Structure formats: C-alpha cells, structure tokens
Simulated scan of single mutants.
Amino acid sequence: MKPINDTVEALKPSGIRKYFDLANAMEGVISLGVGEPDFDTPWHISAKAVESLEEGRTHYTANRGLLALRRQIANYYRNRYGIGYDPESQILVTVGGSEAVDLCCRTLINPGDEVIVLDPNYVAYEPAIEMAGGVPVRIELTQEHDFKLLPEDLETAISERTKAIIVNFPSNPTGGVMSREDYARIVPIIQRSGIYVISDEIYSELLFDGEFCSPANFEDIRDQVLVINGFSKAFAMTGWRLGYLLSNPELSAQLTKVHQFVIMSAPTAAQYAAIEALEHGMPDIEAMRREYEARRNLLCTRLNRMGLTTNVPKGTFYVFANITSSGLSSDEFCVRLLEEQKVAIVPGTAFGESGEGFVRISYATSMEHIKEACARIEAFLAPLQ
C-alpha cells in the first residue's frame, strides 16, 4: 500500500488517553483526569431537543446554523461581555469547539506559517496547526507569573513568519486567567504585528475571581480576533458537540466555506437545545459554578497542605499542581499514583514540555470523591517525603 500522510503519521496520540485507558482497566479507580462536567445537562435544555425531534425538525439547518441560535449567541456576547457580533455575517455554529479550532487553522495557515501556542496548552492545538501545514512556536508559561502570557515573551516569539497565536483563558490545564490589564499590555504588540488571535473562550463562564475579558473587547484588534466558544463546559453539554466561531465578516465567510464542505451544518436538535440554554440557562451556570468553587477551595487547601505547591486557579475546573517535592517526574507520579492508590490524574507533560513537574487534577467530580482522592494522594506521598 502507498504511505499515508506524513504529518498524520508523525502525530503523537493524546497524552491524556493513556491514563484513561489504564484507569478503565482497573476497578475502584477515582478519576480526577476527566475534562468534562460531572453534572448532567439540565433537563429543560434536553427537553427542547426532544421537542424538536417530536416535531420533525430533523433536517439540515443553514450552513452557519439556525438564525435563531445565532441571534441568541449575539445577544449573549453583547449582554454578557459587551462585544457586538452580527448574527448574519459574523457567527458560525460548529460541531464543538474542536471543529472551530480546526477551521481556524485550515483557514488561516499557509504551509510554513508559524503559530504561537502557550506551553502548557490544550492538547488539540498543536496537532491542528501541524495538520494545516503550520509550525507551532511555544511560549513557556510559568507558575511564578500565575501562568499568564507576558508581553516580553510574546514580543520575542513573533517573527516575520508568525501568522497567529492561540490563547485559552481561563486555561486548560492551568486554570490561569488574563485580566483586562494583562491583555492591555499585549494588545499593542498584536496590533503592530498584524497577527491573528485565536481566542478559545470555552471556559469563560467558569471564572471565580474578577470579570472575564476577551481579546475581542479591544477595538484596536477586534478584526484580528477569532473567538471560539461553545456549550460543553458552561452548560454541561459535552456530548451535544456544539460550539461557535465569532470573527469579522470577511474571515467568517472563509471559515464558513470550509465548514460547509466538511460538515454542512451542526446537529439540528443540539441547536434547539442551545437556544434554550442561552435563553434560560444562566441560573444553571451559576449553580454549577458555586459547586466548582467549593471543590476548588477544598482541593487546593489539601494539596498545598501536602506540600504539592498549587496556585489557586481563577477559572476552569482544573488545578495544576507542582509535584517536584515528590522527587518524581510527572509521568512517574501519575503511573505510580494510579497503580498504588488507584487515583487517575494527568501528567503536565501531556500539555507540553513546560508541564514537567506538574500534574493536572480535575475537580469536576463529587466532594466525596475529592476527599477520598486527597486521602489516597497523601498516603502515596508519605513514603516519598
């Protein structure tokens, strides 16, 4: 047989899956590795999807998605974050945020273009860049600076070949957040360089301290920003596979062109559910956020007490704990913790080279599981200290 695509063959499998596969083969495992809410989708949201099926609304929608949904997304971003987008020409409904990442890369990147990624970063960014023919360029984020992007690091990373930067705040895996003041320091660099900003804002509603800020809040670079968001994390709708892309009209037309050839349109029933989520789901978000915050506080207190230095995350449902005091590498720590105490977490190296010395722990699970997992981690650490 002829060889397959060289880039695809060279891709490494997700570093997260290894630990899920190991955990699934064992009984009695407490998993703190999962990257999705443990809450079920609120029933009033699911009911609207059921209703759409009962009424025979099972056909394709417009390529961009239902206009009613796009209007709700426009209202949501205007009312929630103060950013205006035209539902007719600037909003594209996608199959989850993952499709949106892929669309951005395939639409923007020419072979050899450089795209800046933050290290640690979400596992799908670099493969999407490479499959589009681009070259990832990493900027190391440090615990010392609360995993923020610093202007001097951005300035250094930009070259004549730089096409874009992907940012994700609140961040998976670190829980780090960029404030309006933080962004204000890098906006002049972005404007001057002319690079695009792909802003993955899927955790925008899971913010515990301060107000969410998007790069798109800055008029000077608004046309350079492509915003990715969706329903998975805020509304506990991971399995519905629904996201959206916001950008200037010219970019949106090109993104839609790729989308229509690859996808046609996002799932119809999921779009009706999403309309309900945006119309009536804000109380659901608030209830889940309060629970996440309580879990965060407990987990961070326990980890720091054990000697695993952990910054208190300002968003998401992850902590990025420093495990260097154990004397183990990130991979050794996770393998041994799973084998010896049956607790599944993810090594920081699954998210980039700068993740060495860290582990990602998800608190998207019950208080009972978090307390028991902490007891097991403490027992694991005892002979190492």
Rank of each mutant, 00 (worst) to 15 (best):
A124I: 14
A124D: 01
Y125W: 10
G133T: 07
G134I: 09
P136L: 02
R138A: 13
R138T: 13
E140F: 08
E140Y: 07
T142L: 12
T142S: 15
H145Y: 13
D146R: 08
D146F: 12
F147Q: 05
F147E: 06
K148Y: 03
K148P: 07
K148L: 07
K148R: 14
P151Y: 04
E152D: 15
D153M: 11
E155K: 15
T156Y: 14
I158W: 05
S159E: 09
K163Q: 05
K163A: 03
A164T: 09
A164F: 08
N168K: 05
S171Y: 01
S171T: 04
S171R: 08
T174S: 15
G175E: 12
G175A: 07
G176C: 09
M178P: 05
S179D: 03
S179K: 12
D182T: 04
D182Y: 01
Y183T: 01
I186Y: 02
V187P: 06
Q191T: 04
R192S: 15
R192T: 14
G194T: 10
I195S: 06
I195C: 01
Y196R: 15
Y196I: 01
V197D: 00
D200L: 02
E201I: 06
I202F: 03
E205W: 00
L206C: 11
L207G: 02
F208M: 03
G210V: 06
E211G: 06
C213I: 13
C213D: 00
C213H: 11
N217S: 13
E219A: 14
D220N: 14
I221Q: 02
D223R: 15
I228T: 05
N229M: 01
G230S: 01
G230M: 04
F231C: 04
S232K: 13
S232C: 04
K233L: 10
K233H: 14
A234Q: 10
A234Y: 12
A234D: 07
T238P: 03
G239E: 11
W240N: 13
R241H: 11
L242M: 09
S247H: 06
S247P: 06
E250Y: 14
L251H: 13
S252K: 09
S252Y: 10
A253M: 11
A253G: 04
L255N: 04
T256R: 12
K257P: 00
V258E: 13
H259N: 12
H259Q: 12
F261N: 14
V262F: 04
V262A: 13
V262C: 08
V262K: 14
V262E: 14
P267R: 09
A269G: 02
